[in-house]
């Protein structure tokens, strides 16, 4: 069990995280927050790259920074932008990382081949990575994170750069692999989280807002999401009144999906069941969705 206790992190005078308390048991956790909310900072602390300014992170009751090597041995990490040597082949690269992870030579080789097959790169495993596409590189990255069969797998935007087919493959892979481990992944792509994560963690204003199952989180706005059709000239006044979630043109009118906290819905409103995306848009409504991930 991975426990985060009163964690905070400052960069100089800037506070990136404040009083974070979390508990992870085996399962897949989706970290959902707009850019700049502190997702990457949290992940970098869990991976020991950043030191907390306050609080602690415990694995099986022991401080991860004190455990050091013992802890990192159980760790798999795919950074958002990860480095690789252009002149290495995926095989060479995986063997190099395997050495850093302390895998035995023979075991490492078998494992590397196994993983390269799993991510569908077995045909190019001895080609230099110089000419690989973004998706191929990303798959190498996923493979390297799995090398040591980690107990804690941290994936920062793992599906970035993958095409829909690859993304499906990745989801299945993760479901397979996620038994008996803690998987924490961050993504912008809400549908990814929806399909894989057992629990969703939402960060707002440097603090944890929700940590719950998807169903429970969606329930937060149950009965408040509607769809309706609005004439074009009324759209702007309508949007001032209600928070719009999505809009599309349909047969000369605007079809709007929106949130209303009014008790009595209008008769033209069609209630729909809320999705995670609806919750996301509702929660981060007032935030400026800009900025870096740092």
């Amino acid at each position: 069990m991975l426990t985060i206790h009163n964690l905070s992190k400052n960069f100089g005078s800037f506070t990136a995280l404040k009083d974070i308390n979390l508990e992870f048991t085996n399962g897949v956790y989706g970290l959902l927050a707009p850019n700049g909310a502190g997702k990457t900072t949290l992940m970098k602390i869990i991976t020991t790259l950043l030191y907390p300014s306050g609080g602690e992170v415990l694995y099986e009751g022991q401080d991860i920074f004190k455990r050091g090597e013992d802890y990192r041995e159980l760790l798999g990490y795919l950074p958002q932008e990860f480095g690789y040597y252009k002149n290495y082949s995926p095989m060479q690269y995986l063997l190099y990382i395997a050495a850093l992870k302390g895998l035995e030579g023979k075991v490492a080789k078998e494992r590397a081949i196994e993983l390269l097959k799993l991510v569908g790169l077995e045909n190019v495993m001895n080609k230099k990575m110089k000419k690989f596409s973004g998706g191929m590189i990303q798959r190498v990255g996923i493979a390297q994170a799995m090398l040591n069969n980690p107990k804690i797998l941290i994936l920062d935007e793992p599906t970035a750069g993958l095409d829909p087919k690859e993304r499906v493959r990745f989801r299945n892979l993760l479901t397979d692999l996620s038994r008996e481990k803690i998987v924490i992944l961050s993504t912008h792509i809400v549908s990814d989280v929806e399909s894989i994560a057992n629990e969703i963690i939402m960060i707002k204003d440097k603090e944890i807002l929700y940590k719950d199952s998807m169903r429970n989180i969606c329930n937060l706005i149950e009965g408040m999401v509607y769809e309706t059709e609005v004439a074009f000239d009324e759209v702007s006044s309508f949007k001032q009144q209600y928070q719009s979630l999505s809009e599309k043109q349909e047969q000369g009118k605007m079809k709007i999906r929106f949130i209303s906290k009014d008790d009595i819905p209008a008769s033209t409103w069609k209630p729909v069941s809320p999705s995670l995306e609806d919750v996301f848009l509702n929660i981060y409504n007032d935030e400026i969705l800009e900025g870096d991930n740092q």
Partner: peptide, 10 residues
């Protein structure tokens, strides 16, 4: 460094 420092050798 991200990858290297999060591996066992750290």
């Amino acid at each position: 460094n991200d990858l290297q420092y999060t591996s066992k050798i750290g």
